[in-house]
Amino acid sequence: MASSLCLNSLPLPPASSSSSSHPRKLSETSSSLSNNNGSTSIAGAALKPIVVSGSPPTFVSAPGRRIVAVGDLHGDIDQARCALEIAGVLSSDGRDLWTGGETVLIQLGDVLDRGEDEIAILSLLRSLDIQAKAEGGAVFQVNGNHETMNVEGDFRYVESGAFDECTDFLEYLNGNNYDWEKAFVGWVGMSKRWKEDQRMSKVYWGPLNLVKRQKGVIARSVLFRPGGPLACELARHPVVLKVNDWVFCHGGLLPRHVAYGIERMNREVSNWMRGLSESDGSPCIPFIATRGYDSVVWNRLYSKDDLEDYQISQASISTILQETLQAVDAKGMVVGHTPQTAGVNCKYNCSIWRIDVGMSSGVLYSRPEVLEIKDNKARAIRSNRDTFSELHVVDYT
């Protein structure tokens, strides 16, 4: 078992080339879309390059870009693809091609747990990011509570098929001579075949299911432990991201989080996931971002309409939200984490948008919906029998 899982000296994904917070440009644009000053152009309209500050990304300037945000995906790649197609960034021909041009896509975390295709979704998002950058766009992810739980080794919500995917992916990585970039980006195209092979091998595994499960748990531990390959992949993403005038996070940002420092939180979570040790030799879990009911990834203050547990008024929440937005100089906040049975919606004068609709088959299996921010207007959109339905529009001009 040990040799097939390659437990010894498993290589890590490369860390960011610089840990500084100096801005960097995402200007990998194709020659057909670039002009002499590095800006991209569509139909003659030039856009300035996207500029990213922080490592992991914390502040993003994306002048003139259309922004689309997608909520919790929880291991359901079919629903994920549907949401991305609705967002206008993924081809519908099954080739997983970026169709968003210079669009900025933001995924709000909780890719993991409750579904069987978690690594495939992570692979798809990375592949789309590479393609998007070539056209002047970008893909960003923020980590949610289920990402941090798995790095902590909390596998309570992991499906049996997800354990199998971890085993298969490690074998695939081995077959690619531990070329992380090649294996990780390529996994989305290979995972379906590997999954079918797993189904065919069920008869073989029959009485050995316990051994198979143990193998999957070990594989997941290898991949997601602090410093493990997938933990390092997650470490590339922040827990709080500001793009133009909007803040994106999984649970919700509070004034005390801002006072602590957004870049500081992102850096500390990233360092923990990468397995960087404190003075005592153990990775330090950033409590303010990842632990407790009011941490960034767990906070539901803005997302629950029943506030009995919080013992706080709607007016007080509105004040807290406005104080937070003023502190980060933002017009609005976008969160996931808490399924909205009514679909994507906004509250508190539309200062907060709640976009987790529970689309995964492991949650509510609801119709996918996404948020679009374009020309200072935010709207919720969904697919309605191959046509797009506009649910709600707010102008932030």
Rank of each mutant, 00 (worst) to 15 (best):
R225H: 04
G175E: 15
D245W: 04
K133C: 09
L241E: 00
A235T: 04
P229S: 05
Y204I: 13
V222G: 02
M149W: 09
Y172L: 12
G251F: 04
S221I: 05
H146T: 02
Y260F: 14
G136E: 06
V151W: 07
H250K: 04
L210Q: 05
V158L: 12
E181W: 11
C232Y: 04
Q198T: 09
R193H: 07
V158C: 07
L253Q: 09
L254M: 14
F163K: 01
D129V: 03
A259M: 12
Y260A: 12
F224W: 15
G261K: 05
N209T: 14
N143E: 10
R236N: 15
E196H: 15
G251L: 06
F169Q: 05
R236K: 15
D179K: 09
K202R: 14
L210T: 02
I218Y: 01
Y178I: 10
L234H: 01
L170Q: 04
L125V: 00
D164S: 05
D168E: 02
L230V: 11
W187Y: 08
V247N: 05
G186H: 04
G252M: 00
P226Q: 08
W205V: 15
E165I: 00
S160D: 06
G228H: 00
N209K: 14
I130T: 13
A132R: 04
H146G: 00
K195R: 05
Y204S: 13
L234F: 06
A259Y: 11
I218T: 03
L170I: 07
N209I: 10
F184T: 10
W180Y: 15
E159A: 03
M200R: 15
A138Q: 07
M200F: 13
K202H: 08
K242W: 10
L173Y: 13
D179F: 09
G261D: 05
